[in-house]
Simulated scan of single mutants.
Amino acid sequence: MQVQNQLKGTGVAVITPFTKENAVDFTALGKVIDFLISNRVEYLVLLGTTGETPVLSTAEKTDILLYSYEKIAGRVPVVVGIGGNDTRHLLEDFTVLPLEKATAVLSAAPYYNKPSQEGIFQHYKLIAEASTKPIILYNVPGRTGRNMSAATTLRLANEVPNIIGIKEASGDMAQCMQILKERPEGFLVLSGDDALALPQIACGMEGVISVAANAFPSEFGNMVRACLMNNFSQARAINNELIPTYDLMFAENNPAGVKAFMYKMGLIENVLRLPNVPLSKPVFSAIEEWMSNNR
């Protein structure tokens, strides 16, 4: 099956659970993986920014991948997040991290440096040529400080064969529609905004890489599948139920919001690594109230 066809529907940017002592909690990670797969998500994204990768060591990333591959055991495709703002160092990650069982690599645009559009193009061109796995671009200007323009995305899609798609999280619907209108055949366009997934799929996106689906894989996955079948009345009904959770999840920072939900569900400890901290008491209390009224 073509890689792009394996990565339609709901992918989950999997959180990294930590113990109370702040070590990676592999027992909880296994529980989360089983929870997501049993609730029919289409694929998992490991080591994305939702997984708090900026505060994971290379050894921890390697251990997470090896453990997860074994736990997943081929039940769903796996995408691995490898991104950064030092292109040369990023090339080393592609050789150090175990990618043999990965279906593709999701690579966030360089953050903080604020490169020009030409710099973004050359960065992706170099890593795509060096990678043994297909590359999915990730445009998330709210985190990186620089938007990757539709023109740059389309240039990469047309000129670099190993780039097969994009997770588009600019929130700019006009930009999204331009990419969808002008993309080459087979180029995968995925939503990176849970709250915008429904209208973006209506515009032609093939799915979403979701944060919210960590906590609500069945509901969110059903919403996305309904969208892809053009059953928007069903999709709207599900999405309307989920809208309050989107607001609570992203009220302060990601992944503090989704981790709070998952803690209340008994899946993980409510632990993050600095500089991120758990949600403030008022927001956490609002999540508890929502859970008590809806679960």
Rank of each mutant, 00 (worst) to 15 (best):
V3P: 09
L7D: 07
K8S: 13
K8V: 15
G9W: 13
G11P: 13
A13S: 15
V14A: 13
V14M: 15
I15A: 10
T19S: 15
E21F: 03
V24W: 10
T27N: 14
G30R: 02
D34T: 09
F35P: 05
I37L: 12
S38E: 15
Y43N: 12
V45K: 05
V45N: 08
L46E: 00
T50P: 08
T50Y: 03
G51W: 02
T58E: 11
A59F: 02
A59W: 00
A59E: 14
E60Q: 12
T62Q: 13
L65T: 08
L65A: 04
Y67T: 12
Y69R: 13
E70L: 12
V78N: 09
G83F: 07
G84L: 03
G84R: 05
G84I: 06
N85I: 04
N85W: 07
R88M: 14
L90N: 11
L90K: 05
L91F: 09
D93A: 13
D93L: 15
F94Q: 09
T95F: 07
T95C: 10
V96I: 15
P98I: 10
A102T: 08
V105E: 01
L106Y: 01
S107E: 02
A109P: 05
Y111P: 11
K114P: 06
S116V: 04
S116I: 08
F121L: 08
F121E: 02
K125M: 05
K125A: 08
I127V: 11
K133L: 09
P134K: 08
P134Y: 06
L137V: 06
P141K: 11
T144D: 02
R146C: 11
N147S: 14
T152F: 05
L156Y: 01
P161A: 03
I163Q: 02
I164P: 01
I166H: 04
K167L: 09
A169P: 09
A169N: 04
D172I: 07
D172F: 01
M177R: 15
E185C: 02
G186V: 05
F187C: 06
F187H: 08
F187R: 07
V189K: 04
V189H: 06
V189P: 10
Q200G: 07
I201A: 07
I201W: 08
G204T: 08
V208H: 10
V211S: 10
A212D: 02
A212S: 14
A215H: 01
A215C: 12
E219C: 03
R225W: 08
C227D: 10
C227I: 13
N230K: 15
F232A: 09
Q234W: 00
Q234E: 15
Q234A: 14
I238H: 06
N239C: 11
P244C: 09
Y246F: 15
L248F: 04
L248T: 04
M249D: 00
P255W: 00
K259M: 13
K259F: 00
K259H: 01
A260F: 00
A260N: 07
A260E: 03
Y263R: 01
K264L: 06
K264S: 00
L267R: 00
L267T: 01
N270R: 03
P275D: 02
V277T: 15
P278E: 02
P278S: 10
S280D: 14
P282W: 10
F284H: 14
W290R: 13
S292C: 04
N293G: 02
